[in-house]
């Protein structure tokens, strides 16, 4: 039994404070995922909070045979997608708050260009494309794991990753060629 399984048993057994260990173990990763999906620190904070609340409330339904982090990521992804669907506000004013995508070229103008291009590219992605890409590219999850998170067939997940890459390349390739 791994650490998560032991902790979950404790929580379900009545030691509710043990839930803290799950928050400490996964909070940062959930934030990172939420931020990459929502592109907003404030939204990501909300998603983190909502994710752990939902996880706590539905902990009895967690199937211990699967990975807790995959289950948690699925909740976080759903929460982020819900939030993105409802959040119609324009993101451009938040551009300054965003962390910069790091490129090997240290030219500040080029970095700003990459940053804006990446943002434009991400805006073009559908929810499932963005999620699949973020989970594969940034989180390093396998196609099967992403399928579990999204609740989709493997072939659909592959398609989502591919379509995301294609759309991102449309805006990034010209800059890459220019470096």
């Amino acid at each position: 039994m791994d650490d998560d399984a032991v902790t979950i048993d404790r929580v379900l057994g009545g030691d509710s404070d043990a839930f803290r260990f799950l928050v400490e173990r996964h909070g940062r990763a959930v934030f990172r995922l939420a931020y990459r999906l929502t592109r907003s620190q404030q939204d990501a904070d909300d998603v983190v909070q909502e994710t752990f609340l939902r996880a706590y409330r539905h902990l009895p339904s967690f199937d211990a045979r699967s990975s807790f982090s995959t289950w948690l990521f699925r909740i976080a992804t759903n929460s982020a997608c819900d939030l993105m669907r409802r959040s119609m506000r324009h993101r451009t004013e938040e551009l300054d708050e965003m962390s910069e995508p790091v490129v090997s070229d240290g030219d500040p103008a080029m970095r700003i260009g990459f940053r804006a291009a990446l943002e434009r590219g991400m805006e073009r992605l559908t929810g499932s494309e963005r999620t699949a890409f973020v989970l594969r590219h940034f989180e390093g999850m396998s196609i099967d794991e992403i399928s579990a998170v999204l609740g989709t067939e493997t072939s659909a997940t592959k398609q989502a990753v591919f379509r995301a890459v294609r759309k991102l390349r449309q805006v990034l390739d010209p800059l890459v060629r220019a470096t």
């Binding site: 934030f31 962390s99 995508p101 990459f114 990446l118 590219h137 890459v165 390349r169 890459v176």
Partner: peptide
Amino acid sequence: ASLAAIEDPGP
């Protein structure tokens, strides 16, 4: 090269 350019450590 294109994909390597996409790194986003977050805040």
